[in-house]
């Protein structure tokens, strides 16, 4: 037992030192966001705040127009994430359970998307979205976001569906279930753990996305949280406490989702990349 304790002692010290460096930036953000500009400038970044200044948060929320950005990001994620996963599940089911000639090539074709960078679609989609009147609206983000989520989601869901025994599907068919009903009533409910993990992963990815929003959205009215935060920082660059309060406002939802749901999330990340 004493040997074992000694073994972990070294490792624990290493972990604690590293954890300090990983938490340090968060600490700086929190520390700065509760102070006045005057206090930061005169007291230095490491000093404790003179007094906790909560006002920075409502002020950042108001002058940063975060109400608008939150609304937009929530709308995009709440509509896009379920739709995207549903479309991916529809495609993953035949790729996992049907036998037809081009199945494997079709699957490989979808997987190619894993290696295709967003850059390649930016200009063509700007032109296309302009033509169909979606540019500079939230709708502009909908399909491009779905496309870049599909490959990973199809990969994970196909893997999961393959683990479901064929007998279940055959039984449903004998009972007279149509193909879509089989999928909707039998297959999808069984895949709940995978679907849940994908929901969280896709929520984070969608909430955080910058590049496409930067190109497709110009007016303040439709900016998402990352895009809005970027402009907010550009405008108030030297008001450090306000900027840091804005950062906290922007990251609170992702940190919350991550901390509360990390158990499901971890299994999904690894399932997609590694496990059968």
């Amino acid at each position: 037992m004493s040997v074992r304790k000694y073994r972990y002692w070294k490792e624990t010290v290493f972990l604690i030192i590293l954890a300090f460096f990983f938490l340090f930036p968060f600490g700086i953000v929190v520390l700065t966001s509760f102070r006045t500009q005057q206090d930061v400038v005169s007291g230095g970044v490491f000093a404790l705040p003179n007094s906790l200044r909560w006002d920075n948060f409502p002020e950042a929320w108001r002058i940063g127009k975060f109400r608008v950005y939150y609304r937009n990001s929530l709308l995009v994620t709440l509509i896009k994430v379920p739709t995207g996963i549903f479309v991916a599940a529809l495609a993953a089911y035949p790729l996992a359970k049907y036998r037809f000639r081009i199945r494997d090539s079709l699957f490989a074709f979808f997987l190619l998307g894993l290696g295709i960078p967003i850059n390649i679609v930016l200009l063509p989609l700007t032109i296309l979205l302009e033509r169909i009147g979606l540019l500079n609206t939230l709708g502009a983000l909908f399909f491009p976001y779905i496309v870049f989520g599909l490959p990973f989601q199809i990969l994970v869901l196909r893997g999961f569906f393959r683990g479901i025994p064929d007998e279940l599907i055959d039984a449903a068919r004998i009972d007279g279930c149509a193909e879509f009903q089989t999928f909707w009533r039998i297959i999808l409910p069984l895949a709940t753990p995978a679907v849940l993990a994908l929901f969280i992963i896709d929520f984070l990815a969608t909430w955080n996305e910058l590049l496409m929003a930067l190109i497709f959205i110009h007016s303040d009215e439709w900016k998402t949280v990352p895009l809005g935060l970027m402009y907010f920082q550009g405008q108030f660059a030297s008001s450090y406490p306000i900027i840091n309060a804005g950062v906290l406002i922007a990251i609170l939802p992702v940190l919350g989702v991550y901390i509360l749901l990390q158990r499901y999330f971890v299994s999904g990340i690894t399932a997609g990349a590694l496990k059968e």
């Binding site: 840091n244 950062v247 922007a250």
Partner: peptide, 14 residues
């Protein structure tokens, strides 16, 4: 899990 915009702003401040 953080948005990279936030990460960039945090570290620009650091």
């Amino acid at each position: 899990v953080l948005p990279l915009v936030a990460v960039g702003i945090i570290w620009s401040w650091i």
